[in-house]
Design a protein around this nucleic acid. Structure first.
Length: 562
DNA sequence: GCCGTTTTCGGCCCGACTGTTTTCAGTCG
């Protein structure tokens, strides 16, 4: 998986070109880099099929350079640019306020090529001496050099969620603010967010900004103006606030929700009509406002169906909206039950009864208890005897609650494609979940064999990935999906903040070939509330209600799977 | 360097904020 490596090199090329005042090419390289970062398969596979050129933004030149890199491990063009300006561009531009142009000026004036040298130069007062620089810029560099060393970290959306909601509530409760909406990648429910973006209206923008930047949790104010401020709050999370007029709110919502590429596509449509689209509205060539109060009005005026935030990734949604082909996305309240959770029989922290109580509170019709099979030592999994005991406990709990508690198991798939619970026992359970938990030699073969030979209903976290910490399994997903469809096995969209697996791009690709379920994999009652995160990923994967089996009532669900 | 219901050549999103200027370049989103 060299996608990130390749993307990083292309980003660096863009920076080097920008240092040299080259027009337009940086934009082209960045676009290609962004699209490669977002691929759902490895760039090596695409290269082997000879389809590099089909990646959006990759033309003949960039294609050849990527091929060269994949074949030789080097890209001459990149090397050459780096020799001309031998600076660690990635590290230096990570400093807040430093871009390629300033890095070049600093290099030419002082010879600084990396963060350590930059720090020394700033401490010695050399930076302030450079033309166009001053004391403040120098101090700014010193203030932000540590953050740059730590590197950019995106936060899991599940972790950002309570923080963001909390912020929103605080502003909403303040009388200085009127409307308050969380926008940006948070609103699109990307698996990770780089910062929290907030859009608001206020009677007095200045007072509202003052309140925002002086909160108790504010560690640093990066910048503040009449309409826009940025702060760092504890946990080193950046929060950006934009305040706009009431009648621009829809346009601003649209604009600040992004994604960047989605917005560029929309603006191109506007430009083609000789109009202009910005955060204040949609305007004709004489600056008459055509739309802007609501997001809906903007999409409508551009002759597009309304596009839900989760879809705004420029992956075909604008085209579909123009043709009236957008899916009617699944909603969280259509989910009738949760099909993966753990109790104190394995590594869960609570009893079956406590999980059932919470599920009832959430209004579910059914839940499936899926403790780990016994081979997973680390989770002290269940053997067949313990499953018998648990069956009795579940029967008792079912007397007590309206929600129907089903018994399942999360059987472990080993490197021979065997599960750790016998076929006979699995047949007795209501539904069977299987999953890989260890790194094994032939994951595709093992999964395929397990799905074919055991009565599996759901393949959980199919790629066994961890968002931004563990690479997805290198499996042949085409093959797994094909076998899953044949064997009536649903693929899971796991709602754990660190998993969100199957990833949304894959969800989108295979949504017409295989059924999905969305489960929380909860290890405590409160984790049952993660369901919205999984549903959001299903929505990002263009799923309708019918793609998600646990929107079905129990009887229909069983008919589908068993 | 890429790309095409406007184009195979000529466009390519655009506004806010900062710090340094003394009218604006650079950065950011």
């Amino acid at each position: 998986m060299k996608n990130k490596e390749v993307a990083d090199i292309l980003y660096e090329i863009a920076d080097y070109l920008e240092m040299q005042d080259v027009d337009w090419k940086p934009r082209a390289y960045r676009k290609a880099a962004r699209n490669i970062e977002g691929l759902s398969e490895t760039i090596e596979d695409i290269y082997e099929r000879g389809e590099l050129g089909e990646i959006d933004g990759v033309g003949e030149n960039i294609e050849n350079k990527i091929a060269e890199y994949l074949e030789t491990g080097e890209m001459q063009y990149h090397k050459q640019l780096k020799e001309e300006l031998p600076v660690d561009i990635e590290a230096l531009t990570a400093v807040e306020g430093l871009g390629p142009k300033r890095v070049k000026k600093i290099y030419q004036a002082t010879g600084v090529t990396n963060l350590d040298e930059l720090e020394k130069a700033a401490e010695n007062g050399e930076i302030a001496e450079i033309e166009g620089f001053g004391e403040k810029t120098q101090q700014n560099i010193l203030d932000h050099i540590e953050t740059a060393r730590k590197g950019e970290e995106r936060m899991l959306i599940g972790k950002a969620f309570p923080i963001a909601e909390n912020l929103r509530e605080e502003l909403e409760e303040s009388e200085k603010f009127n409307q308050v909406t969380l926008v940006g990648s948070f609103r699109r429910r990307r698996p990770t967010v780089g910062d929290i973006d907030i859009l608001a209206t206020a009677d007095d923008a200045e007072e509202a900004m003052e309140e925002f930047t002086s909160g108790s949790d504010v560690k640093e104010v990066l910048g503040t103006g009449e309409t826009k401020s940025s702060i760092i709050i504890s946990g080193d999370l950046q929060v950006d606030l934009r305040i706009v007029d009431e009648d621009s709110y829809g346009a601003a919502l649209q604009y600040f929700t992004g994604s960047k590429d989605h917005n560029v596509t929309l603006r191109t449509i506007a430009v083609n009509k000789a109009w202009k689209l910005n955060e204040y509205g949609l305007f004709d060539s004489e600056d008459n406002k055509l739309a802007g109060n609501t997001e809906e009005s903007i999409y409508a005026k551009l002759q597009l169906d309304y596009i839900e935030p989760e879809l705004r990734e420029d992956t075909g949604e604008v085209d579909a909206a123009a043709k009236g082909n957008l899916p009617d996305l699944v909603e969280e309240d259509e989910i009738k039950g949760d099909l993966q959770m753990h109790t104190d029989y394995s590594d869960g922290r609570n009893t079956v009864e406590e999980m059932a109580e919470k599920a009832e509170e959430l209004g579910y019709e059914y839940i499936l208890v899926t403790d780990h099979g016994h081979s997973l030592q680390i989770a002290s999994g269940v053997d067949e005897e313990e499953l018998e005991e648990q069956r009795e406990e579940i029967d008792e709990v079912n007397q007590e609650f309206d929600v129907e508690v089903l018994q399942g198991v999360e059987a472990n798939i080993d490197d021979n494609g065997e599960l750790d619970i016998s076929k006979e026992k699995l047949e007795e359970l209501d539904l069977v979940v299987a999953a890989l938990h260890n790194k094994i030699e032939n994951p595709t073969e093992s999964i395929v064999k397990a799905l074919k030979e055991y009565p599996v209903d759901i393949l959980a976290h199919p790629l066994n990935r961890k968002v931004s910490s563990r690479e997805p399994l290198d499996v042949d997903l085409d093959k797994i999906v094909e076998v899953a469809a044949e064997e009536n096995v649903a693929l899971e969209i796991n709602s754990q903040p660190a998993r969100l697996d199957l990833p949304w791009r894959d969800v989108k690709e295979y949504r017409d070939k295989v059924d999905y379920v969305v489960s929380t994999d909860a290890h405590s009652p409160s984790e049952l509330e993660y369901m919205h995160l999984g549903v959001a990923q299903a929505r990002r994967g263009w799923c309708k209600q019918e793609n998600i089996l646990n929107t079905l009532p129990l009887e229909k669900l069983k008919e589908k799977l068993r």
